[in-house]
Simulated scan of single mutants.
Amino acid sequence: MAMEAADIEHLIREAFPTARVEITDLAGDGNHYAATVTAEEFRGLNRVRQHQLVYAALKGKMDGSNGELHALALTTKAPE
């Protein structure tokens, strides 16, 4: 089951309302995306923790073979 880029962005924005979010569909199949998320909430956190927070914001959409989203390449950072 595929997922729309707008749905991914919506879930991330729910968790990080002031974040800058850029979603790119890498394969055109609705299953392989790249996301860049720039959020103040990431300040002082290591990259692993930043990614954990984004995955949590996706509310299980990437969980195992039943997930709606197969692959998400993440770039996360705090604003400069």
Results as ranks from 00 to 15, higher is better:
Q52A: 09
N31V: 08
M62W: 07
E80Q: 13
V37D: 04
N66R: 15
V37Q: 02
E40C: 06
K59N: 10
Q52I: 01
Y33E: 12
K77I: 00
A73G: 11
R43M: 07
A73V: 14
L69E: 05
G44L: 03
E40G: 11
I23M: 02
I8A: 00
T18K: 13
R43N: 05
E9M: 10
L45I: 14
A71G: 10
E40A: 14
M62L: 14
D63T: 15
E4H: 09
T24R: 14
A56C: 11
R13A: 02
P17T: 12
A5G: 12
V21D: 10
E4G: 03
Y33T: 07
A73D: 14
G28N: 12
G64Y: 04
Q52K: 06
D25C: 07
Q50Y: 01
A19V: 04
H32D: 13
A34H: 13
K59F: 00
L74E: 11
A2N: 11
A15P: 03
G30Q: 09
F16T: 05
I23L: 12
A56N: 13
R47S: 10
T36L: 09
E4F: 05
E68C: 01
L72R: 03
A39F: 02
L45T: 07
T75R: 15
D7S: 13
A15M: 08
K59T: 02
F16R: 04
P17A: 13
T76L: 03
L11E: 12
M1K: 07
G30C: 06
H70D: 00
D25W: 10
A73C: 13
A73F: 13
T36W: 00
D7G: 11
